[in-house]
Nucleic acid binder design. Structure first.
Lengths: 114, 114
DNA sequence: AATACATATCTGGAAAGCAGGATATCATTT
DNA sequence: AAATGATATCCTGCTTTCCAGATATGTATT
């Protein structure tokens, strides 16, 4: 159990954790890495987005400890550095299922939800 | 299993789902509602933040289907509308544990991670 | 009907995140 | 050492999100 002091800290960490997961491209990258390690080139090809963008998302995931990078010759190979992401994704999928449509149509978090 | 066509859609929905969870105040509100329904006034007092702010976050959670609002006399009582959030929070807590420090110090997602 | 209470919405402004493109870095090959 | 390939970082502008304060809406009370 947590002490009362630690709870808010954990909440901040948890919020950031979810926020990192809260981007389709990063989610896609993590999904791909679930299958096994991949070099940046392969990831770029798989997600179909410009290399600098993928690289930035990888930097985010790397700095936050979600993935690990290893230089292998000319390439840099990425792999997952965190266990349990697949389980969270599963639970999220089944949990959000009842509100999937709303989530899809709700394109912003602030006002003007129409 | 998903068809190849549905996967991207689900990814967008999942990303938004996580993004809604990716705010400390919203997370706090959801935690409080796990214990049972609460009126806005009680929520405002509990999270210790200005009423309009709490109200906006509630609107977000409501529009996305995370919570439900019911008018009861002068008050409006909120309750959870989604099952499984507690399980996701649990899994998230244990999953992010190895990188909790990084998440705490990593205050931005874009460049300038220092 | 007037007032008080509870909550929601609407402003404006600041900051964070994201996209696009150019460029820098590092390792390999010639 | 020069050139090439692979990846990372920098710069700029734009969009989204967040916050703070003021105001509006709706309900109950007098």
């Amino acid at each position: 159990m947590y002490s009362g002091v630690l709870a808010p800290v954990d909440r901040a960490a948890a919020a950031r954790f979810f926020r990192v997961l809260g981007d389709p491209t990063r989610l896609h990258i993590l999904e791909l890495l679930e299958e096994g390690e991949l070099a940046v080139g392969a990831l770029v090809a798989a997600v179909g987005q410009p290399q600098p963008r993928v690289s930035t998302h990888l930097a985010c995931l790397r700095h936050c400890g979600f993935v690990r990078a290893e230089r292998r010759g000319k390439e840099i190979v990425y792999s997952l550095a965190l266990r349990g992401l697949d389980r969270i994704a599963e639970h999220a999928d089944s949990t959000l299922e009842p509100i999937a449509e709303r989530l899809a149509t709700c394109t912003r978090i602030g006002p003007e939800w129409v």
